[in-house]
Design a protein around this nucleic acid. Structure first.
Length: 359
DNA sequence: AACGCGGGGTT
DNA sequence: AACCCAGCGTT
């Protein structure tokens, strides 16, 4: 079965009967294909599709995207996660517009140099936009190849990456790389699924080593296991007149580029009395006449690598002689919809809208 | 080579 | 709760 022609023929034949109609399949525009691939990195089709449609409506060309503010791009990206994708997308749009005269690179080597584009995305754009013979290796491909060929090398090892991308290249039908790449990903997503794949109705049943040795549920092999850490956020929702103070996250941490509120982080959840005794609280409110008007329920958000626990203290400033909080962005409450927030902030805000008419 | 980076669906 | 999704950049 180490017959590349047979493998790609079977996969492509399968795909002609199991086509997924997706918006970015209808175009050869490298900008749209690039945009779709960035959105779909580590993201399910169903989750990414509405964002793709929003983006091509708002920014029909790379020049439109380049002209936008980063805040505007992040706002449109809000809720999709992995926000460095949006920042790199915008950076690269400006680069293409300003340095490349708005023309997307047309060869694999130059595509791969762009920020936010790695091996997978470069191969995807090269094949889908220009018909160039570069094999994609994404999560679907790792799964399909490891099973069909019984490869137990961990897919998240350097050796594994090398081995699988070499095999994918050998298997690629060089006469129809786009169809071949599309087919193997669709096959992984619909037929050779992570859990309970439909092996009985699989065209590769007779060849698949994992199926014939009953190792389907053991492949692919991954070596990493990551531990989640707990973090405790005490958010200060500081209101003064019709405004509230926002914080733009610029440090090297989660949610870079998004907005939240002034934050006191501690290694455990603090009681109100403990929080009032915290040096950062004192720095904020020393010499200031304030009132805590409400304390939210605890919110919990699960990230890929940490748990965020957040409590929101709503504080009204009556009179201040302290200007340290003024280093944050003072924003009219009616205008906060324009800022991009992480999920845990939007949960808090929608709760407030629901119960207190806060807007 | 190892780690950090979101959010959500499925099992 | 664990796993995984059209991965990439940094250290």
């Amino acid at each position: 079965m180490k017959d590349s022609f047979l493998f790609s023929s079977l996969i492509i034949n399968w795909s002609t009967k199991n086509d997924r109609l997706l918006p970015w399949k209808q175009t050869n525009d490298p900008y749209k294909i690039w945009l779709s691939e960035i959105i779909l990195q580590q993201t399910r089709i169903d989750q990414g599709t509405p964002y793709y449609l929003k983006f091509i409506t708002e920014f029909p060309t790379v020049n439109d995207l380049a002209k936008a503010d980063e805040d505007e791009v992040l706002k449109l990206w809000q809720g999709l996660g992995y926000y460095s994708r949006a920042r790199n997308l915008h950076f690269t749009a400006k680069y293409i517009a300003n340095e490349l005269n708005g023309v997307f690179p047309t060869n694999h080597k130059d595509i791969l140099k762009l920020k936010g584009i790695g091996d997978y995305t470069a191969a995807a754009i090269a094949s889908f936009a220009y018909g160039l013979p570069h094999a994609v290796v994404d999560g679907n491909v790792y799964r399909v190849l490891s099973r069909v060929f019984g490869i137990e090398t961990p897919i998240d090892s350097t050796q594994g990456k090398k081995e699988f991308s070499q095999l994918a290249s050998e298997l690629l039908d060089y006469k129809r790389p786009a169809a071949n790449n599309q087919a193997i990903m669709d096959f992984g997503a619909l037929q050779c699924t992570p859990k309970s794949p439909d092996c009985e109705n699989c065209p590769l049943k007779d060849f698949c080593i994992a199926f014939n040795t009953k190792k389907i549920d053991q492949l692919p092999v991954k070596q990493k296991k990551l531990i989640k850490k707990n973090r405790y956020f005490h958010y200060l929702v500081i209101n003064i007149d019709e405004s509230v103070f926002l914080n733009k996250r610029n440090t090297k941490d989660i949610w870079q580029g998004l907005y939240d509120f002034p934050l006191i982080e501690h290694s455990s959840l603090l009681s109100t009395e403990e929080l009032k005794d915290h040096p950062e609280w004192k720095a904020y409110f020393e010499g200031t006449n304030i009132e805590i008007t409400s304390i939210s329920k605890p919110f919990k958000q699960t990230l890929s690598h940490q748990y965020i626990h957040a409590v929101f203290y709503e504080i009204m400033i009556k009179k201040t002689s302290n200007n340290s909080i003024l280093t944050h962005n003072k924003v009219r409450r009616a205008a906060i919809d324009q800022f991009a927030f992480p999920k845990i902030i939007t949960w808090f805000l929608s709760d407030k809208t629901l119960y207190l008419g806060f807007k």
